[in-house]
Nucleic acid binder design. Sequence first.
RNA 1: GGGGGCGUAGCUCAACUGGUUAGAGUGCCACCCUGUCACGGUGGAUGUUGCGGGUUCGAAUCCCGUCGCUCUCGCCA
Length: 629
Amino acid sequence: MHEFRTHTCGELRKSDVGITARLSGWIHSVRDHGGIIFIDLRDHYGKTQVVIDPTKDFYQELERWRVETVVCFTGKVVARTPETVNPKIATGEIELVADEMTVLGETEQLPFLVAKDEDAPEALRLKYRFLDLRRDELHNHIVMRAKLIEALRRKMWDLGFTEYQTPILTSSSPEGARDYLVPSRVHPGKFYALPQAPQQFKQLLMVAGFDRYFQIAPCFRDEDARADRSPGEFYQLDIEMSYATQDDIFAILEDLLTDIFPKFTSKQISPAPFPRIPFRESMERFGTDKPDLRNPLEMIDVTDIFKDSGFQAFSKTVAAGGVVKAIKVSGIAKADNPQPRRFYDEMIAFAQECGAKGMAYIIWSAGETKSPIVKFLTGNELPSLAEKAGIQDGDVLFFLADKRALVNSVGGKVIGELGRRLGLIDPNVFKFCWIVDFPMFETDEETGALIFCHNPFSMPQGGMKAVETQNPLDIVAYQYDIVCNGIELSSGAIRNHQPELMYKLFEMCGYSREVVDDKFGGMIRAFKLGAPPHGGIAPGVDRMAMLLADAPNIREVIAFPFNQQAEDLMMNAPAAVDMKQLRELRVIPVPQELKYEETFKKLLAEAERIRAAEAAAAAMNASAAPEQN
RNA sequence: GGGGGCGUAGCUCAACUGGUUAGAGUGCCACCCUGUCACGGUGGAUGUUGCGGGUUCGAAUCCCGUCGCUCUCGCCA
């Protein structure tokens, strides 16, 4: 008989009754009746009830029947009587009557219980992550994630893609997020960078003729955390394809997502093709570039209606170049169940917290309009609004008036808040959309200079001709995001593979040819030696897993995540290292309490002093012993 | 770097406007119990109220500082 087990804890069935089996696992729970003891033995596969007669010799061996002890039981598989069958577990029709027991791993008192889902503080859960991972919910999340990755790989191969690996130690690139740097021992003072994404490598693979690339790629960005953004490292399903148009890439992703998502969720998936919303339209309608399409609310531009209105708060805003936008909420003012006055007050307070000066509203109810502003609307405003918004009885319009950017930003937040408060967001669907036509450039708010809006390697729509003839701020790129339920799953682009066009775009942002050659030399050289048109996308694996697991934050789908401060509380990373290691790398840590600039100058001065002393000593030696030569 | 929230027993939480010995559930320890499956019962131990300072006759409670966790803005091509 195998030393540890003949079956797993989820395996035995009625058909196994009569055999002798050996099971190993954790003590999940103990029910000690004095004359008989029941133990639920748990492993990765399930739970099995073990029955113990306390008169057996082995009973004395285990001092405490403490949960989470790892034990091995050998005994006979016995059918349970009908009234003692437990339908809640797969092995509930049988139980193991123990003849022998071996303790394989004892436990001290647990920092939190595995068998109960009580909320332990996250710091504790992260420190004892291996315990937390034993718990059903997290355990299942990690298994689901593994299966998701397997399914993604399989689908990508089915679609004709091949997985290629790319370096983890590479060079720092000037654009984008903060890099994680690794000091070079061989080249003191120089650094590798961990890749923020295999962006340049995958493009070079296209130039190298591999045609269809994918990789479950680790990406490293030294940026602060969010609920849907783990600091440090994360994974992307990185995709790149040659001779591809934007439509080709969309078709691949729509195929992938509508195939994969239903395998892991019972929620309804929006059918392909997914809606395509130009970036500017999304900002105007939803106030964000990642709209949650489950929320039916959106902004309507009603600036025209208020241009000459007697309500001066609005008409003056319009005169000053601002806009007035309305958000229609249907049916919340019906006579049988109207929202109370307090609801409107709270929404106005919310809008003000978001930066609005105020928020007006009009209620259409029982043939009348109720509103603090309606007495100022002496012109044709009310019927115009009703017509433009398609108002029916019980509907409400909320109004925001200010500069366009502010109205959009506040409006987006108000839409989200209204959706949440009124329960308008269906939790049982996944709604995808594409955000397309991102601007190539924007202006730096501080300097007013032209900067890249997204990815400097994206192809501007219209190519060189557009770049030469259009206002730079009007140029849009073949640059797109895919958004699911308000979460950005991925960015992608058709790449700019034309060196001259790339030089031109960088020049517009103030980078000379030399700088481009220096920073992106590998890629520019490649593009000068026969580059196919290509493009790609890179959906976030962690975010997909998070959506599918319905997890409140991304740490719930990562086995060993960092906390918000980018620390691994279990492994104690980051950590100080030996002086020997630092010496090899020529790295001197400067304690945080010391002022960096001053310390740096002192160190430089000290280095200079040592160098001068050594040079002086060498000169002395040379003059003292000239006869040696 | 900025803003919000939280911090009381191993864990989850309570403790009124500042007022007696800081409580409950769970876990832990001991004992009882032959059909439970979150078993049940009896008893017991467990606290620098995150830390430091202040106000007060008196502080878990109020004030200041600090640390930790979390959400968020900046940031994330």
